[in-house]
Amino acid sequence: MSRLNTAALTKAMPQLLSLMLILFLNYLAFPGFFEIRLQDGRLFGSLIDVLNRGAPVIILAIGMTAVIASRGVDLSVGAVMAISGALAATMTVSGYPVPIVILAALGAGLLCGLWNGILVAYFDLQPIVATLILMVAGRGIAQLITEGSIVTFNEPGLIFFGTGSFAGIPMPILIAALLLTLAIAVVRRTALGLLIESIGINRSASSYAGLNSKLLLLVIYAFCGVCAALAGIIIAADIRGADANNAGLWLELDAILAVVVGGTSLFGGRFSILMSALGAVIIQAMNTGILLSGFPPEYNLILKALVIIVILLAQSFSSLGGWAFLKGEFRSKGANRQ
């Protein structure tokens, strides 16, 4: 087991190093970066911000990892967030109790995911095309629900999901951590991990092996939809309102990026949910760092792009056996000297 852990750690090296480097740079830009204090019974500090703000993308990345591992992609998660947020806000304003509101919003995400899954698995549409439909239409649906305006609510039960805390830990972090643990446990304790990788690498061969790949794909997309809905609820609860135009805008790209930074190939196959979550944290650490650095906002995107290029290069260098190669070079040089 320890051999496996070491191997996993070596594989995670580029990501861990990137995260540490970004955190260190953040510290240089802002010496108080690692300070954490209790504010109104809630942990407060930049590090907490990174996790708290990263939580929605972590949740999206969990669902997205499964989709990408199956050699797909879900472009609609941002729009699904907007739908679930809009539904939650509108229903709350209409006076529905919080549990019903949450269930309805998650149910909307489930429906969206099932829609995507049916298009991909049973109608054999390319995932990028299939989910593009909902990416475009979904935001329109959300706007219809909110009638184009920001629906503001003051229901403490719902707001709790965005800004509340339990034992000092902000709810979004708690929810993301819970989902992460749950997802990893399900993937590890059931055969789903193996079967998802299998259809991602070779769907045809998996079907020949007796796998119900259509049903599995449907479940994967449905799960991704539920994750997106959950992220949508958190974001709406955080700002106490549903902004159909902007909620989750472009977050599908952040989620995909998190998965890629985490080392799962867009060509499907081997995946690690934990690493995708780490990818999401890296992205958010970078975003928070940019905010703290005081650089003019015109540089945000360039800085972000640069950091991502460096991470991806390090990752591909590593997967090509670059570290081992370097080590070998050092060894052979050492040998020459003797």
Partner: peptide
């Protein structure tokens, strides 16, 4: 294209059909 799952290990490839039969 229809047989092996190339990136999966020998162990996983051998287990696949039995696993599919046993359920998720």
């Amino acid at each position: 294209s229809d047989g092996i799952i190339g990136d999966l290990s020998v162990r996983e490839n051998i287990s696949l059909a039995l696993q599919a039969q046993r359920g998720w």
